[in-house]
């Protein structure tokens, strides 16, 4: 099938995607790199020029940056742990022959289709609100003071909301992997007297390794860029308590109108994503080889 002319035709067919993605990636990245070394504030348009690493130094000297870095990693790590652990448990549960399994799956998958601003606003207003939220009602029912979720525990609240959104994704993928496990293997182990835990530890978990790896890799890509949930609920506050790196860069660009600094932050975010990707691939890459 691969004659010379068909190869040429194939290249022509691939070219538009490659060119578009190259432009999409390289042009903005080059511009961001350029701006990151410039003095460029929209509020003082007369002053321009090269500033060397000043914008980067500002970030590294800012306590907010280290907090934002910590928050970003806490968000990714926290949501990963919650969704993978709960996802495994729920997948094990739903995989049992229960009545109405099809409808169950529909209920469980639903949060994944809820757009981030809606998810955030449901939790913020209907559940976490200190006067009108359902959690406040429950607290009052027990005679306790309502918890000020978004004021006192903003990062935990955001982690909770994002976990709710991503739990269905983890559950669905782990469930799919679980359903391809043959029951004979489990039954054989059962007859050999393996305990439920041993069956899980030595048969079920190894079978799910690949699916768990995929969940971690894909969720990390999306979690590093979480934005809408924070924008809708805490706006990064109180203070900078729930500001992540993407949100901090957004604030520098939109509120402070400091293009140079925001660009430097963008480059730092790229470096961070690469570091995370490197460690993920090193730690998990071999799980993906068949």
């Amino acid at each position: 099938m691969s004659t010379h002319s068909s190869r040429l035709a194939a290249r022509m067919m691939v070219a538009p995607s490659v060119v578009l993605l190259l432009i999409w990636m390289i042009v903005p990245l080059a511009m961001t790199l350029y701006y990151s070394f410039r003095f460029y504030r929209l509020l003082s348009p007369d002053r321009t020029g090269w500033t060397g690493f000043t914008n980067y130094v500002w970030f590294f000297n800012s306590p907010d940056f280290w907090l934002a870095l910590f928050n970003t990693l806490a968000l990714v790590g926290g949501v990963l742990i919650i969704t993978v652990v709960l996802g495994i448990l729920i997948a094990l549960l739903i995989d049992q022959p229960v009545k109405g399994q099809g409808f169950l799956r529909i209920l469980v998958i639903a949060p994944f289709f809820v757009m981030p601003p809606v998810a955030a606003s449901i939790w913020e207003n209907l559940f976490m609100h200190p006067q009108n939220g359902l959690f406040a009602a429950v607290a009052q029912g027990f005679g306790a003071q309502p918890i000020l979720f978004l004021e006192q525990y903003p990062m935990w609240s955001v982690i909770g909301i994002v976990s709710w959104e991503w739990l269905p994704f983890a559950t669905l993928i782990l469930l799919t992997a679980l359903q391809s496990l043959s029951s004979e293997q489990i039954e054989a182990a059962e007859m050999d007297g393996a305990s439920a835990f041993a069956r899980f530890r030595y048969i079920v978990l190894p079978h799910m390794t690949r699916a768990i790896t995929v969940v971690i890799l894909i969720q990390t890509i999306f979690l590093l860029g979480i934005f809408g949930e924070i924008f809708t609920t805490t706006q990064g506050g109180p203070g900078s308590a729930s500001t992540t790196l993407p949100y901090m860069i957004f604030k520098q660009a939109i509120a402070a109108k400091d293009i140079g600094r925001a660009a430097a932050g963008g480059i730092i975010a790229v470096i961070l994503a690469n570091i995370v990707a490197y460690f993920l691939m090193r730690g998990l890459g071999r799980n993906l080889d068949n």
Binding site: L21, G265, A277
Partner: peptide
């Protein structure tokens, strides 16, 4: 249907563009 030697690499590269944080390209 007409895979070349570099097709796998090309696919991986395309996926890697998803790793780029949106904030990094927001300003340009």
């Amino acid at each position: 249907f007409v895979p070349g030697r570099k097709t796998k690499d090309l696919l991986m590269w395309m996926l890697s563009t998803k790793m780029m944080p949106a904030v990094a390209v927001m300003i340009p």
